[in-house]
Structures are given as C-alpha cells and as structure tokens.
C-alpha cells in the first residue's frame, strides 16, 4: 500500500517528570510513518511508551524534541489542535471514563454538537455511526446499562460520527471479556476495510496483531522491531526476551521446530492445524 504519510514522527523525544523532579525519558528519537488506510498494531510492555505515542498523535501531548506531523499540521506549531483531534480519534481503555451522554445517541451527539454540526446532518451522522458499530437498536438506552463491549462500541460511534481519518485504540479491549474484545476487533477491521479508516491498535494481545498490515514493537521508548506480522512473530525468542507474547500457534510451532520437527514458520492457527495434520497423516 503506497500512499502519502498521514502521521509522521521525526526524531521525537518525550519526557515525564517524576516526584523528585527528575526527567524520565519515555520516547527517544523516535521515527515512525503511518500511511493512509493502514492497519497498524503497536505492541510493547507496560511503560514502553505506547500510550504516549498515541497521545502525541492527536496533540494531547506535544513532543519535547522533534516533530509530529498529522496531515498538513505540525502538532507543536499550530493553532489547529481541534482539527487534528477531529481527524485522529482516540479510544481509551476504560469505557466508563469516556461516556458523557445520558443515552447512547446523546453520547454520540456530544462531539458533533461541539463542532457545530447542523441538527439535520447530526441526525444523519449519528444514525450512520450507530449503524456502523451495530448499536442502532440501543440508541435510546442508558450507557451505564450496557456491557463493556457495547460501551466501547458507543465510544467508537462517537468518534466515527466526527468522520476521522484515523482511529487509535489505546488498549481499548484490555478491560473487556473475550466476547467484547472480539466484537471490537471485528468492528475496527471492518471500518478499516470498508470505510478506509486508518487504524492504529495499541494492544497487549498478540492475537490482535496477526491480521494487521504492520506490527510495531516498542521497547524502552524506541521502536524495537517492525514489519508484517509474519516477519515480526517469526522472531519468537527476541520478542519473548522483551516480555512480549506471541500467538499460541506461533509458540507451538517454535517449540516443535526447536526440537527438530520439520515445521515451517507460520502465523495463523489454521496453518498450524494443517501442518500438524500433514505430519500426523504422513502426507
């Protein structure tokens, strides 16, 4: 996929200050380019700088050094932060902290009211957004009575109603049960494929990375590895050394291969099943 960069990090560094006033580096000299239409999964252990990266992408944080460019703007040198945030929507981990409306549709309307969308168009956008996330039947419901997955889908509807070009999920599935997690991943994959929205998924779950166009592995504020899921997960030892996990199929393949079984590197569970059956049945 060759297209213009939508988000570009150039030599970006960022620091937090601890309780003793010391500067702690969070990101160090980071370079990263995200192209329009890409589905990128960013993995890394707690404290590796993943969330800081997400917040730099929509000007919630500004780089201490270097430049973050989002579309035509440099986040550190523009008055247009609202345009940036409209273009890059961010979904956080805890669904309860990001819902403001008393009904599902009020919640989706909140962002649109803030940017002054005319009422007739607002109706249209809300309906379309709720339909896209599969929540149209819940428009009049109270958000606090929804499941975690439904709350996150409502939060995503609020963002896509703003017609963003980029959707960032900052561990948006971490608090959900497996069912809720599946709902969200299917939804964002569809938004990426059908609506062409660029998706950046920050996650701990290696299973969420196997279908991405690109996997970026963060470690100690730097990009440690990046590439297609197949290439990145092929290096099991290196990933596990950094405290990261790989999908079950990759772990089993790696174990068998390390013990002399002639089984090629693979990514999906389906491939592992095929290889094992081939070996068992002497084909």
């Amino acid at each position: 996929m060759e297209s213009a960069p939508l988000i570009q990090f150039e030599n970006v560094s960022f620091y937090y200050t601890d309780e003793f006033g010391e500067k702690l580096p969070v990101l160090q000299n980071l370079n990263l380019t995200i192209a329009e239409g890409e589905f990128v999964t960013i993995i890394g252990h707690n404290g590796s700088g993943k969330s800081t990266l997400a917040k730099l992408m929509n000007a919630l944080l500004l780089p201490a050094e270097g430049e973050v460019r989002v579309g035509p703007w440099k986040t550190g040198a523009t008055q247009e932060v609202w345009k940036i945030r409209q273009m890059v929507g961010l979904v956080f981990q805890n669904p309860d902290n990001q819902i403001v409306g008393s009904t599902v549709e009020d919640d989706v309307a909140f962002g649109l009211e803030n940017i002054g969308v005319p009422p007739a168009e607002m109706r249209e956008r809300i309906d379309a957004a709720l339909k896209a996330v599969g929540m149209a039947a819940y428009a009049q419901r109270q958000p606090h009575k929804l499941s975690g997955g439904q709350k996150q889908r409502t939060a995503i509807a609020g963002i896509i109603a703003m017609r963003p070009r980029v959707l960032i999920l900052d561990e948006a599935t971490a608090m959900l049960d497996p069912q809720g997690r599946k709902e969200i991943m299917e939804l964002v994959r569809r938004l990426n494929r059908e609506a062409g929205i660029t998706v950046i998924n920050i996650s701990h779950f290696p299973e969420e990375a196997v279908d991405a166009d690109r996997v970026v592995v963060m470690r100690q504020g730097k990009i440690f590895m990046q590439g297609t899921p197949r290439n990145v997960f092929a290096d099991v030892t290196r990933l596990q050394e950094t405290g990261l996990d790989v999908p079950l199929a990759v772990r089993i393949q790696h174990y068998l291969s390390a013990n002399g079984v002639p089984i090629p590197p693979l990514l999906h569970q389906k491939e592992l099943v095929e290889e094992l059956c081939r070996l068992f049945l002497n084909r």
């Binding site: 089993i252 174990y255 068998l256 013990n259 002399g260 079984v261 002639p262 094992l276 070996l279 068992f280 002497n282």
Partner: peptide
C-alpha cells in the same frame, strides 16, 4: 506441546 512432540517422534515419516 510435549504430547505433540512425542506423537510426532513416533510418526515414522518424521525423523526428529
């Protein structure tokens, strides 16, 4: 994992 490895070692076509 151990079971799979053990089974594969018993499968004649696979020399491990």
């Amino acid at each position: 994992q151990d079971y799979l490895l053990h089974r594969l070692r018993q499968t004649r076509a696979v020399i491990i």
